[in-house]
């Protein structure tokens, strides 16, 4: 007879909840899409989609918003992984948005294409008629995200209104849309960075090599280590040097900081995260430092 041994460890509980969200959205929306950057959060999303729909095909394509300034390791991984699982990949390119004159490239040493992604993403959503986009954002990443819903509704300009989100009760999601609206769906909202890594380790998932300690030419800016690359201008007084580093997020090379680390295995990474002293974003996203409420501003504009 049932006893207390029916006990699901917390990671498996989070997994079961995320799978439930994905199946609900697949069932209730007409054209979902899964956003995949090759970063650890979207790697987990991809695995969850396999859990939700295999042995069937995914009921949606996979899409990457490519800033053109990505780490080559991440792009190589992206292409290989999507091929392995046999699903369709759409690449929405920021470079194309620039070429078409939809956006204007920032200039100067602090230039970044991060903000431009928003337009490319919205254009792609419109072009393909997507009504729901799965993203790997987590509520623990940043304080402004703590109030984000699992299903977050955006108007036709991609805008998010924090005052006017639908209440989410139990696991009963209301996925009804008005014309022009689309939803961002965050199945791993309740996961922490450590959960993500622990899951990657338990599931034996491969991740791009830049997540592990490696030697790289970097320079210091605002207390962060940025990679020396053609996509970023160094300023006076900034000196390149070689360090043992790894990345905690894979984003745009122009604004994603590395951390000094010797963690070269998944196990070591998990252990390091568990003992870490600085939150993921505070440490590694240069653009978040620009204004205190940067994330919130970006969300209002339609970025994740």
């Amino acid at each position: 007879m049932p006893t207390a041994t029916y006990h699901l460890p917390h990671l498996r509980t989070l997994e079961a909840e995320a799978v439930q969200v994905m199946r609900e959205v697949a069932a209730e929306f007409e054209r979902p899409v899964l956003l995949f950057s090759g970063g650890k959060d979207s790697i987990v999303l991809l695995r969850l989609a396999e859990k939700a729909f295999r042995p069937g095909p995914f009921p949606f394509p996979v899409m990457h918003v490519d800033t053109g300034h990505n780490f080559p390791e991440a792009i190589e991984y992206r292409d290989r992984r999507v091929r392995e699982i046999g699903e369709r990949l759409i690449v929405a390119s920021v470079q194309e948005s620039i070429d078409k004159g939809r956006v204007v490239e920032e200039t100067g040493p602090r230039a970044s294409r991060n903000a431009l992604q928003t337009v490319t993403l919205l254009d792609a959503i419109r072009e393909h008629g997507f009504d729901a986009a799965f993203g790997g954002a987590r509520r623990d990443e940043e304080r402004a995200r703590a109030k984000e819903r699992v299903l977050s509704f955006r108007d036709e300009f991609g805008q998010w209104d924090p005052q006017n989100q639908r209440p989410e009760l139990w696991a009963l999601y209301n996925g009804r849309l008005r014309r022009g609206e689309h939803a961002r769906v965050f199945p791993i909202s309740n996961w922490t960075e450590l959960d993500v890594w622990q899951y990657i380790a338990e599931e034996r998932l491969e991740v791009p090599s830049i997540y592990f300690a490696h030697e790289r030419e970097v320079f210091r800016r605002d207390g962060m280590l940025l990679a020396v690359s053609p996509y970023i201008e160094m300023m006076d007084g900034e000196e390149p040097f070689t360090a043992m580093v790894r990345y905690r997020t894979v984003g745009d090379m122009s604004c994603t900081g590395a951390v000094e680390s010797t963690a070269a295995t998944l196990e070591a990474v998990v252990t390091e995260i568990a003992a870490t002293e600085v939150t993921e974003r505070g440490q590694t996203r240069a653009d978040d430092k620009v204004t205190e409420a940067a994330m919130e501003d970006r969300k209002r504009q339609g970025y994740f």
Partner: peptide
Amino acid sequence: HGRQGGDDAAEAF
């Protein structure tokens, strides 16, 4: 750089 690598890490994990 053995601090985080190898057996220690596996054990902590």
